[in-house]
Amino acid sequence: MIINQDKCVACGNCVAVCPMSAIYVDPVKNRANINDEACVECGTCFRGMSTENLNPTITRSIRKIAKTFRFRFEPEPDVCPTSAIEMNELEMPRLIRQIFSDPVVEHKSTGIKGRGTEEVKTNDVRLRVDTDEVGYTIEFGRPGVGVKFSDIEVMTKTFARIGVKFEKNNPVTHLLADETTGEIRKDILDEKILSAIVEIKTDINMVEKVLSTVREVNLQIDTVTAIGISTRCDDNGEDLVLSNLLEKLGYPNFRAKTNMGLGRITNTIDLTKKEGQIK
């Protein structure tokens, strides 16, 4: 994102809109500007404000006169009066910020927008987590905090060492240079994004190890994490294994999301041959 310095009138409306506090008004230049290191290219300032096309020179003159006579000439708080905020063309590695932070941009690796993963929402159909398996989502970052890929890599490398399985249909997994080591592509390690989700799965015997690993690594990285854990219920719709284990380990738990088992795979091909036909 850029703020056109020829158009900006330093009204400051865009400052409060930025979820990463990356926009500030330079008191010397009397223009709003963007801290490129803090900006995650989410596009909130560009899409989240209404725009007008007032003449910047006239607007600055009126504001200056108003200041002299000690009254204010301000646009509405959700308006950029001179349409000074612009979305610029991005290239890798900077482009990775927009891909993970802008909710309208699609991840080419998964075909999904936002963080680029359905998690286990479609487990009825996709069967990411099967019976006797445990799935985990580790979410990194939040608005106002963000996360660098170098911090995510600390977690993925630790996971690789304890032998977890990374979810294939996940954009972070696609950025791993080597799944066996958990290393992320070196060209993006210094890039900061709004948030990302790492997905892994193990058998039931690894639950305690994974949860303790997340707690330990969380103390080493400069962001916040949140962990979700899932399993496939039995034929009666009950979880009599994972929930009991979590209680035993001291993790109070409740069902945040439940798949109803109504999902069905469509357009399947039955390769069983009968009377010379493929059904």
Rank of each mutant, 00 (worst) to 15 (best):
R128T: 09
V125K: 10
E118M: 13
F100K: 03
V145W: 03
K64A: 13
I85N: 09
E89T: 11
P103F: 00
K148Y: 09
T122F: 15
I152G: 05
R72L: 14
E119M: 08
F73E: 02
R72M: 14
R128N: 11
S83F: 09
V145R: 03
I96F: 01
I99M: 02
P93S: 05
M92D: 11
H107W: 00
N123V: 03
M87G: 12
E139W: 14
R72H: 13
G111K: 01
H107I: 00
G114I: 04
T68E: 14
G144N: 05
C80S: 09
G111N: 04
D130L: 15
I65T: 08
D130V: 14
D130I: 13
R94E: 15
V104D: 08
L127S: 11
E91R: 15
A84L: 07
F73I: 11
R115V: 15
S150R: 07
V105Q: 04
I62C: 07
L95I: 12
V134P: 01
E139K: 12
P75K: 03
F149I: 08
K113G: 02
P81N: 08
I138L: 02
F71V: 12
D102V: 05
D78R: 14
L90M: 11
L95P: 10
T131V: 11
T110F: 04
V79L: 12
G114W: 02
V125I: 11
G146I: 03
R63N: 04
S83T: 13
S150M: 04
F73W: 05
F100N: 01
Y136V: 00
R97G: 09
T110R: 01
E133A: 05
G116D: 01
L95R: 08
E86Y: 04
T122P: 10
L90K: 10
D102F: 02
P103H: 01
H107E: 00
E106M: 05
E133M: 06
G135S: 06
R97M: 12
E86Q: 08
K108G: 06
T117M: 01
I85W: 06
P93W: 02
D132F: 12
G114P: 06
I62S: 05
F71W: 06
D124I: 06
R115S: 15
F73P: 03
K67S: 11
G141T: 01
E139P: 10
G141Q: 03
